[in-house]
Every structure is written in C-alpha cells, then in structure tokens.
Design a protein around this nucleic acid. Structure first.
Lengths: 105, 105
DNA sequence: GCATTACTTAGCCATATGGCTAACCATTTA
DNA sequence: TAAATGGTTAGCCATATGGCTAAGTAATGC
C-alpha cells in the first residue's frame, strides 16, 4: 500500500505549497500571479509547483507564454479519506471501550 | 500560518510511518512489536517514531526497559480539517458555478 | 551475577529538498 | 524589429532525510 499518499502528503508538508493550494481553491491563476506573494526566486517557486503537479494536486496548461495552474480535487479526497479512516478505526476502538465501561458486569 | 501542519504532513509522507499509525489505531504497542514487521534496523525505525512523536501524532512512555507507543488523535483531526476546508472552499466554488449555470439569464 | 532483552547513542553515507544566480528561450507589445 | 514579459534550463549550495553499523546502557530472566 505504498501508493501515492507519499507524494500527496509530502506536497502538503510545505507552507508555500499549502498557500498555493489555498489560493487555487479560489480559482485558477497563472504562475506569475501565484508567485507574486511569495518572497523567493521564480525557479525556486517553480520547483514547488512541480511537486504539486507530481502529486497530482494541480494541473497546468500553457497558452502563449503564460502557464495557468488549476487545482485537482481527487488527491485531496484520497488524503482526507486515509486520515478519516484512521480516525474512524481509532474512535471505533474508543467507542468499544466506552461500551465496556458502561456495562461493568 | 506556518503552524504544525508542516510536521504533521511530513510525518504522514512516509509509508513506514503511516503503517505505524495504522497499527496503532488498533491499540498501543511497545517499540519492538511495532518494529517487527518492518525490514530495517532498529535505530532507523526509532527515527521514524521520533518524527511521529515530534509531529505530536504519537506519545510514548517508558516503563522498565520497554517503551510503549500510543496514538494521539488531535493532529490527525487538525490535518483532516485543513484538507476538508480546502475541499469545501473548492466545492463551494463549483456550486456557485453550477448555480450560475442553472440560471442562465 | 551473567546473559538476554530492549532500547540508545554515535557516527557515517547517499540522496532529496529548498534555496540561489545566471543565462536562455519564446511570446507579446511598443 | 527591439524591448519587455513570462517562464525555463542549468548548475551550485547547505541542510534534511532515510538508511546503515558498532558499541553502549539499563532492566529482566535464569
């Protein structure tokens, strides 16, 4: 089960990249606009975008000299559902404990 | 907002560490037992445990020579809620699009 | 009390990551 | 067509990461 969760979570483990995702939930944007608020060189920023793209969190398309970036929801769902599953098993265990505690005989 | 999400997501970005979390949802366990199924040296495995502990995903306590590891739910909730929020904003945007599409005048 | 068990500490290694500059296309725009 | 705009490519650097071995310590078990 060493699936794509590696790249998904790694992509989200950086504040710059999470900020890009947050920005993209409000709509697609060209690279230069996404880059503007981040105090780093463009090539550095492009590396972050590549990671997001490798993780499948983002899709890009180039028209003329402008590359536009779009968010991709599926991986977010995959990551969320993994976490949710863990919590459910864990909470289910707590529930069983609680039930045992409530029936003390 | 460069909070603890960095360490949370980084901790989950490795299959060994996710496997440990999955195992721990079924109950706490000593280091040696958690290590057993993983084909790597113990010190290497301990580094993974440290990352989980640094991320707050796990808590440990030592009794005698045995260190027992317990899962900690709060960070899982934090990570899950971040992802959920992104999805909600993104989906909200889609909904607005849909509403606009439905009212074409 | 000696051996085993269960980690710990220390140190080394290769690769990955996150950052930079400099120089180079390729489209627009003036 | 020359200049500006929007990326891209190449290459360098420091630190982090994930792996190892070897040797040490501290409880338990025999």
């Amino acid at each position: 089960m060493a699936n794509h969760l590696d790249t998904f979570f790694a992509a989200l483990a950086d504040p710059t990249r999470r900020a890009v995702i947050e920005r993209l939930t409000e709509g697609s944007a060209p690279v230069s606009e996404l880059h503007a608020p981040h105090d780093m060189a463009l090539p550095t920023f492009m590396k972050h975008l590549s990671k997001l793209e490798d993780a499948g969190l983002v899709r890009t398309e180039k028209k003329g000299r402008v590359r536009t970036v779009h968010i991709e929801a599926a991986p977010l769902e995959a990551a969320e559902s993994w976490i949710k599953r863990q919590r459910q098993v864990w909470e289910g265990r707590l529930d069983r404990f609680a039930r045992i505690a409530e029936k003390p005989n």
